[in-house]
Design a protein around this nucleic acid. Structure first.
Lengths: 215, 215, 215, 215
DNA sequence: CATGAATGAGAGTTCATTCAT
DNA sequence: CATGAATGAACTCTCATTCAT
């Protein structure tokens, strides 16, 4: 089978094995950190030999790429399923924030693994590109949402880019709080975040009305 | 000299060497990434033997701690020097953002090095604590600023915590843009960021007035 | 294979390799001394890479433990095979001395290796315990022999403990003479040692008779 | 001053320093074992720099030789002072055993240090020779004592050599018991050892008489 | 498909020794 | 006499990767 970087894998067993290995790697990354994630440890968790990893993945770099792809696409699906059918742009913004935070909350292992890989990405070929693309796309999607809202008269005059960048940064930083602060109250945080971006993005008069209703 | 973890080094030469080594390590971290930062490479950059590193730092962990301490304290001084004497809380907020972004802009190597170490922090004893403390303190300082502004009637009712967290996350994420996007326009970004937090933190009527004056 | 300290190794090849490595280590210890016994030298003697040693033994300490265990158990078997079926306690004592000296004579490499390891034992975890246990057991076995002889009326009133300790010390010291004195005559030494302990352990009237027959 | 191996040191200060260093090394050897006895640790105990050791001793090997010489000569003096004026050879034997055991008992640090060096001697040039010579001389002195006793009619027909070798081996092994067995009763051991060698060396009729007087 | 034995480069660390001051 | 900075070789151990079976 000898995989080389990007092949369309026709073997069912092969694909299943690759997924198995990828998931085991995610677990190891989350549990042991990047440094602790050696081929031997991954193989040990699966109860197989090291050789098998090399058989299914041409290199460790490729395995880590698979991890990044797996988590990114899983997160993408999660968001997609929870974003359709909002009546307004403001509603869509609320859905976005809510969906994203719930993903972070319910997929801590994956997020942790992704963070570990990304942090050590520069050395691992292919990974930084993968992540940069995902990041850019996420920001652009949000920019489009804010732009749409402004054109529809729902949102005010704070530039969409800074709104998008700031929202993404804030959400991304949440996973660290979730991990390290046991007392972190996610639903309270979500309420505050909605309030902040309602205010930041919203029209002045809407602010008055909505802001009041939140207290 | 045989240093162990935290001694007050009375030797001038010794201190100078430690600083030299720390700075060389910062350069290597920024240039080669965490994985590429080996004792041999650091020594090579300084044109000295590996042994001398062990002579001045008891372990690699201690050297990395020195890097973190160095950058954190340097950044702290930078901020301090640029924050005093604001006439209002809103003025202080502007100073804070401006000072912080200018540090990121002018100290890319240090920021890059810090990021590399932090990303691999879990394995390196002492480092996570150092960083967590700095992070917490930064958020609390901002919270105090927002709280003060609200008590003074300058700011509105968005909770200080979410404002602080979001501002810090947005600023922290900027260093990545600065690095990877050659077209990134920092002063434009700064204007937008000021506008965003003026809007988010500000009073409604002030928003109208101030917001207008920014256009 | 990843061995950790004390596992029952089911792989024949693995076991064979471990034995090979253990024996090579014994040869190196005897030839180069403890300080000269590095992983690189052992690997070099086997014509393999250093890494394979770590593959079969989790650490150098474990390898040295294997050496001690190997020699101790080999010596134990040697003694056992030559000790059964003595008609009297005095006969058993003669068998013991004879068997022990013949082991020292025919296994100089092993003895030399053991001595090297034991001499540096304190630093090597597990080794001192292994040796202390073996030593204590050897003395106790001899004490039991002398006690039995006294109860049977074969031996006199010199305490068993001092007889056992002194005999063991004398035998142990012999390996050094064997090594450093090319003119050392082992069979003459054995005769004298038998005579000494016949006299020391024996009944007075037996001494007269036996002692006379020796001249 | 630059010492080279065997010079007659004319400087009083130099000599004093050498003794200081030698004694510090003995303490370190006893406390930390051979492996823990590095130049840095020795210097640290003295509160001086490493360089000074190299100044007074051409190499570590020479320092270790000095340790061996120091302990050996100190022990020699101890024995000498306690051996003169015995009325009989048997009395001399008793004095010898008693003096030797009391030295082991009262100079555990020195004995421990000596043992550590000797155990690692093969690698350290000069040391094995020093020790072998001391050992040989000790055995010969004992042989002479036993020979004298036989010629005087005090001792019987067990060969002097085996008596000397066995006695030395037994005494040498005692230091280990002294160290590792807290319950070890040295005076009881001394009585038994005297009894053993009275019996082994003595005339038959004397044995009967003397042996009885010991109970 | 899968294994386990083997490799080899490189990691951090230790330490006796040297030498300018 | 004494220092402490510096060296460089050697150490054990790790790990991604290869390959015959």
């Amino acid at each position: 089978m000898r995989t080389n970087s990007s092949e369309s894998d026709s073997s069912f067993i092969g694909t299943a094995r690759r997924v198995q290995i990828t998931q085991a790697t995610i677990e190891v990354l989350a549990a042991e950190g990047y440094t602790g994630t050696t081929m031997a440890v991954i193989a040990g968790r699966l109860g197989v030999s090291k050789g098998i990893l090399s058989y299914h993945f041409a290199s460790k770099a490729e395995l880590l790429q698979a991890v990044v792809r797996f988590v990114l696409s899983e997160a993408g699906e999660w968001m997609e399923q929870r974003m359709h059918g909002a009546a307004s742009f403001r509603g869509a913004l609320h859905s976005y924030i809510s969906a994203n935070l719930s993903y972070l909350d319910s997929h801590r292992t994956e997020i942790r693994a992704l963070t570990e890989v990304l942090a050590n990405a520069r050395a691992t070929e292919g990974v930084p590109e993968l992540f940069a693309a995902s990041q850019a796309q996420a920001v652009h999607a949000l920019e489009a949402l804010f732009d749409g809202g402004r054109r529809a008269g729902e949102f005010g005059d704070v530039p969409s880019r800074i709104l998008a960048v700031s929202l993404r940064a804030t959400i991304d930083s949440t996973s660290e709080s979730l991990r390290s602060d046991p007392a972190f109250d996610l639903s309270e945080f979500e309420r505050e975040l909605l309030q902040l971006f309602d205010r930041a993005a919203g029209q002045y008069d809407q602010i008055t009305l909505e802001g009041a209703s939140h207290e």
